[in-house]
Write a protein that binds this DNA or RNA. Structure first.
Lengths: 340, 340
DNA sequence: GTGGCCCGTCGATACGCTTCGACGGCTGCT
DNA sequence: AGCAGCCGTCGAAGCGTATCGACGGGCCAC
């Protein structure tokens, strides 16, 4: 119970303490016989190395810092799959996850790096001009961004390919035979926070619509609430023409919009096409299930962790930066009108 | 950049390294003059103590391990407020949170404790007969449970007062003039997992109904899905009599039940009373907003952390165990029928 | 004037591990 | 037979902090 040390293991196995270390790390050849004896001693004592001592000696903590946006609005329900996936990937590489809320802003970063609490940092919820970026770029530990700022400052980024998501959405609308599309925007708060994907999506939507020869209209901002959705839907139907098509890129607004339409007796899939940008899980819970472009939080996080560990293994070398886009996927469900 | 040590600070301030340590910890009196010089040096170098070294020397990590249920079903949307609150409370006491998924089961516990990764552990999603409990009880670090097992084995527990929640719900139904109440149960999966609150709620509901002289009926299990809710609602309306009252203790089923009722043209608040056991946030998103007994995840977590830190401060002494119940609160919204 | 005491500081040590250099013995080559 | 070289192991030196005992210098009390 009193926590055995590698010295105890060494004594029991009749070897030196350094040999125990080499058995565990495999960094030097050890004879089969010795290895067996040491392993037996380890098992017998249920020895586990002390993380602090190991970190001190090796300069590696086997911990990944994860800075998550709690206070802010940005679709907090979509957060769990990110966290879960990141934790899973970390464990797969024998790392743990230190969870930090970003209420502290920049201080969290300096603390994580300054105290050597972790070997790497995952930063979520990146704003276009994120105040944490300069700090992150100057950080002693590698940082990876989930989300894309205006200037990544050499930091690696991973995010959904929002332009592609816009293109897929528009293509779906076009395939359904619409000649105009109404994009319901994000909430004022999310726009104010300056997430980059807002602009990335919108520009691509405009371009895709122009390329396909369909008219592009916008309703923005759209507050994420019943009332916000009602207002946005009213406006969208007003300008949407006789056979409206609605694009809802704000994940958390999707259920509200579907509900607001239904309330009005305008049934998605019968009277109006709705394409949402949200997880498949969310898409399947609306009534009726909404045609969606998936935001793939699991893919995005897994990709980020993969890049992170590749970077950790390679050490300081190798090209750090780079923007990695994860391809979205459109699933037609019950809210796409049949082409006329 | 190269990470300063307390020795660097000492040199710059013209004192010994131990003095720097005492300035930071305040464990010995330091003259105002010295303190000022040391503090200036700390600021100038932006010195931060190395977490590993500190942990090694002091036997304290300033980290709280949090074992969260990811794989399991148990209402994963309700998870975030827990995590967020726990992280916030930890930071308030200058601790960080190490997030561990409980896929690893018992191994996660032994790792956290065995490697001295944290000073204390928060265990969520406790089953009635939880396999992790013996390990937790024998653990070198204090453990607190969120949820109540059949036998806490001396471990402190915090949870919502489910019996009280049942009483509040029944009282609401009684106040609305119903003479029978239908309890829609949990999902088969949740029951199988053996969460204790299922039984605690149900027993109290039966007792409260008996005490109030209203008839108690049950529909169980209720799968958390559109179809599950439809089936449960059909059954509930069949047995519920002319003026039905529905209790929905499974948080995540509440929106589905409300929706299933609405689909059938049985409007909550007009044709039927619905009382849900869920967070206020969820209650406010249904249409119409559902009368609810709040599950108060923030209160529960905050209480747990408070107990944890009190325990940490007191050291090994003090009565460890004890079951702490957090009082739920009923909020009447729009799904309570007016008394006849 | 002197003894005792407390305040403030220092030096040394321990925490448990990783890692480097060293070294003995054995193999294989000449 | 002798030597080079490699394999497997050991000892020791840190890693950066907390903490304990020691100690010098004031201060107060007698």
């Amino acid at each position: 119970m009193a926590a055995f040390t590698s010295r105890d293991v060494a004594r029991l196995a009749g070897v030196s303490q350094s040999t125990v270390s080499y058995v565990m790390s495999g960094r030097r050849p050890i004879s089969a016989d010795t290895r067996k004896r040491v392993q037996a001693a380890i098992d017998q004592l249920t020895y586990q190395p002390n993380a602090g001592a190991r970190a001190l000696a090796s300069q590696r903590t086997q911990v990944v810092g994860l800075v998550v946006p709690f206070g802010t609005a940005g679709d907090t329900t979509a957060l769990l799959p990110f966290i879960e996936t990141i934790a899973g990937c970390a464990r797969a590489e024998d790392h743990d996850v230190l969870l930090v809320t970003d209420n502290e802003g920049t201080a969290a970063l300096t603390r994580l790096a300054g105290r050597s609490l972790c070997d790497a940092i995952v930063l979520m919820n990146i704003a276009a001009a994120d105040a944490r970026l300069p700090v992150a770029a100057a950080s002693r530990v590698p940082v990876i961004l989930i989300g894309i700022p205006d200037d990544p400052q050499g930091l690696p980024c991973v995010d959904l390919d929002y332009p592609e998501a816009a293109r897929l959405s528009v293509a779906e609308v076009v395939a359904a035979g619409h000649d105009r599309v109404v994009v319901l925007g994000w909430s004022a708060e999310e726009i104010a926070r300056g997430a980059n994907y807002v602009g990335r999506f919108e520009r691509a939507a405009v371009e895709a619509a122009a390329a396909a020869g369909v008219e592009h209209l916008a309703v923005s901002p759209v507050e994420v609430s019943r009332e916000g959705a009602r207002a946005a839907v009213a406006e969208a139907l007003r300008i949407g023409g006789p056979r409206p098509a609605l694009l809802v890129p704000a994940s958390s607004a999707v259920p509200w919009v579907v509900q607001a339409l239904t309330e009005r007796g305008v049934l998605p899939g019968r009277d109006v096409t709705v394409v949402g940008l949200c997880t498949d899980a969310v898409a399947m819970t609306t009534v009726p299930p909404v045609t969606n472009v998936s935001t793939e939080p699991r893919d995005v996080s897994a990709r980020a962790m993969q890049i992170l560990f590749r970077h950790l293994e390679r050490g300081r070398e190798g090209p750090a930066g780079g923007v990695e886009l994860v391809a979205p996927r459109l699933t037609r469900r019950e809210t796409t009108l049949a082409a006329p």
